[in-house]
Structures are given as C-alpha cells and as structure tokens.
C-alpha cells in the first residue's frame, strides 16, 4: 500500500502552555512495496510520525493517506479498525505487550479482534510462529516462561498474524546481542520480500538503514530534513552530523581514506571482500591496473 503524508502537522496539547509541535508540515510518499528507513535523533518526531501510520494519532493539520484510507484532522474515521488490520506495528520492546496464558492465544489475539475465522487463525498461527523462527512446540507454553529474545519473536508473530500489508518497525533490535540483531533484521527483510510488504523501519542504526532500506527519510525537529536513497543520503556526512546523526561506519572510513590518500572511492553496498579488493588496488596505484 502506498503511504503519503500531505502537509501533516501534529501538535500535542494545543492551546495550552504545554503546546508542542511534534510534526511540522511534513510531506512525503512511500511507494507500495518499498522498504523505508526513518532516522533522526530522539525527539525528532519519528515516533509521532509512526503513530500516524495506523491512526493512533490523527494529524492536527493536513492529511495522511494509506492505500485507500484517509486520515484527516477532526474527522472520526470509521474504517480505523480495518486500517489497523492492514498496518501492523511492531513497537519498541514489543515483548511488553504480551499478556495471554499461552503463546498460541497471544498470537491469535490480533486476528481474533479483527474477526478472522477460527480455522484461518489456526493456520496463521502455525505459519507465523514458523516465520519468526520459533518451533510450534512452544504454542502451548506461557509466553512469560520464554527467553527475552523468544518473547520478542512471539510478539512479532502476533503482529504478523494480522497479515498486514504494511509493517511498521520501531527499533526492533533494541537490547539484542549482535547476532540477535542481525538475525532479527534478516528475518524482517525476508518477510518484506516474501510477502511483498511495505516496510517502514524507525531506527537509530545507520548500518541497518544502509543495509536494508531502499529509501531513507531523515527527521529533525518535526520536519523532513533530508530524503533519498541510502547512499545518496549517507554521503552527506556534514549535513547529517549537523542534526546529531552519524553516517554508517564504512562511509565514515571511506571519507577518511579519501582524505588521507587524496583519492576517491565508490561505495555501492558491495560486499566487504570486494571493497577490500578495491582498497588494495587503490593502494597499489589502482590507475595502472585498468
């Protein structure tokens, strides 16, 4: 589903001394089927943006369009429920939302709320527990007896079981160890491709944005500060540093290398081995090898 924001502003507690503009005149379009990373430091408006994606918040001004759904200011949206079925949100530390007695019941909770048939739910639970990499032996266990990483996967399965066409991820790897982080991101990427999802990833990890996204939105002070393809965005190191963001380490390194050796290097997301080879050629005076 295509997502578009048209001049969206959001104000918390308007007309009070606590008034706070979280989003200001935000406009962008996310084409259906893309994997978009939203980056920005804490307080830049990322999480307010995220909550507009399934109608948890409605814009104070402007309009949000998600597929055929429209969310506007001051308008009760009767289709809110079906919008929420279409847009699955994996919140930060999603394991905190688990509450049922068994893993099965917790995964089934979303689909049940949306009125999915019993047989279909059984099917979905089986499928999603598998796609988050857990065994179906776990279904009858209490989610609270599982390890932290497993609990998170159960919570994610609960979102996937709604079979959304848009998947919104808020810092999904927070608190995991390096392997856990990589496995988690690979899993989402797999799902994104297999189920042709539109994926929105809110992240602090520039590494992940570079590795998985095909488009990046940079937020600062509630406004869209920059947007573009990851390589395009991350090559503007100074502009990013200005708003308190880093660039991925490999790009940082290339910049330093280029300065030191007075040369230029292309980075196009090539594997590290290829990159090492280019580096070696440069050092040997790459221009002779051609």
């Amino acid at each position: 589903m295509q997502i578009s924001f048209k001049n969206v502003s959001y104000i918390y507690q308007p007309k009070t001394p606590f008034e706070y503009k979280a989003l200001q005149d935000l406009s962008f379009t996310i084409p259906s089927g893309s994997f978009v990373a939203v980056i920005g430091h804490t307080g830049s408006g990322k999480s307010t943006l995220l909550q507009h994606l399934n109608g948890l918040l409605a814009p104070t001004h402007g309009e949000v369009e998600i597929g055929d759904y429209k969310i506007q200011a001051d308008e009760k949206n009767k289709q809110l429920k079906s919008l929420r079925e279409q847009v699955g949100v994996v919140f930060q530390y999603p394991e905190h939302q688990l509450f049922e007695e068994t893993v099965y019941k917790d995964i089934a909770f979303g689909p049940t709320n949306f009125g999915v048939e019993k047989d279909e739910i059984d099917d979905r639970v089986e499928r999603t527990i598998d796609s988050v990499g857990l065994s179906s032996d776990m279904l009858e266990r209490s989610p609270f007896d599982l390890s932290g990483g497993q609990m998170r996967r159960v919570a994610i399965a609960g979102v996937l079981a709604m079979e959304p066409s848009v998947l919104v991820l808020d810092e999904p790897t927070a608190g995991l160890d390096p392997r856990g982080q990589r496995e988690m991101m690979d899993m989402f990427y797999q799902l994104h491709r297999d189920q042709q999802l539109t994926t929105v990833l809110v992240t602090h990890s520039m590494e992940d944005a570079l590795a998985y996204a095909d488009y990046v939105l940079v937020m600062d002070q509630g406004q869209l500060y920059m947007e573009g393809e990851p390589l395009e965005v991350f090559h503007q190191k100074e502009a990013l540093n200005d708003v308190g963001l880093d660039v991925p380490e490999i790009i940082e390194f290339i910049t330093k290398f280029e300065q030191k050796f007075d040369t230029s290097m292309q980075y196009t997301n090539q594997p590290l081995s290829q990159f090492a080879e280019q580096l070696k050629n440069k050092l040997k005076g790459g221009h002779h090898d051609e």
Partner: peptide
C-alpha cells in the same frame, strides 16, 4: 554469537588477499 568491529573485519579481508598489515588495527 558476537561480532567483530568493521576495522577488524576489513583487516581480515585484506589479509586473505595477501595484504598483511603490520599489526591488528582496532580503530580507523
């Protein structure tokens, strides 16, 4: 289940290619 830093990984790739660095670098 752990990861090595980028610089380490790069040094090892270079080493595999026969470019042996004098010491194990740990930062840029």
């Amino acid at each position: 289940g752990l990861d090595a830093p980028f610089v380490t990984k790069l040094a090892h790739e270079l080493k595999d290619m026969g470019l042996d660095l004098e010491m194990e670098p740990i930062n840029h």
